[in-house]
Amino acid sequence: MSPLSGIALFVATVLGMELFAYAAHRWIMHGPGWFLHASHHRPRSGNWEWNDLYAAIFAVPSFILLLGGVHLGWWPGYAWIGAGIAAYGAIYFGFHDLIVHKRIRHRYVPRSSYMKRIVQAHRLHHAVHSRKGTVSFGFLYAPRPDVLKAQLRKSGALTQSSTIPD
């Protein structure tokens, strides 16, 4: 496999992971996997929450594809796909756990309109503390905050007088 093809596969995997993450978040984590994800919608006590197990679960395919593509003689493209999954996980950790939830203290303040939008979308996602009625399940892409606020009100999860994070 040519390096250019591998890089294209890597980039496509990182972008495709956003679709996978959206679907997993909406229909697994806010569905049958709520028993783990619910911890993420409650105040955290300590460094860890049950939801952190999803990082380990989603790392398994990446590990297997990297191992197979690099050491076990599988199609080399599997290594690029595994690396793309791992890169998405690193991006997710950096943005979600570090920037949005500040699991490690830092002084970074989002200034770009993109970063402000991502942070606001995640805050609006957490405005609902149950598995039903919330908005914004993606991570690298988020609808405008005014659209999300309207969806929250329309769903009945929040009323006009409810406090919606800015």
Rank of each mutant, 00 (worst) to 15 (best):
Y78P: 06
A21G: 11
W34Q: 01
A56P: 01
D146K: 13
G84C: 07
M29H: 11
N47V: 15
H96W: 00
D146E: 15
S113Y: 10
Y22V: 11
A157H: 08
V147K: 10
V135L: 08
S136M: 03
W34C: 02
W50V: 12
Y78C: 09
Y108S: 00
H122L: 10
D166F: 08
Y88K: 09
P43D: 15
F58S: 03
R131F: 09
I81E: 04
H122D: 13
G156R: 00
R103S: 12
K149A: 15
M29P: 08
F58L: 14
G31M: 07
I57W: 02
F95C: 01
K132W: 13
H96D: 09
G138M: 03
P165G: 10
L15K: 05
A87C: 12
D52Q: 13
W50L: 14
W48G: 00
A59W: 02
A23G: 06
G138L: 02
H30L: 06
M1A: 13
G89K: 01
L19T: 12
G156V: 07
A87K: 00
W27K: 11
A150S: 11
S5G: 14
A79I: 09
R131S: 10
R44E: 13
S112Y: 02
L72D: 05
A38W: 08
W27C: 07
D146P: 04
A38L: 12
S62E: 05
H106T: 09
L148Q: 08
H106M: 09
K102H: 14
T134M: 00
L158A: 07
D166E: 14
A86C: 08
F10P: 05
L66V: 12
S161K: 12
K149S: 15
A87N: 00
P143C: 08
W48I: 00
L15G: 07
V128L: 05
G156P: 02
F58N: 04
V14N: 04
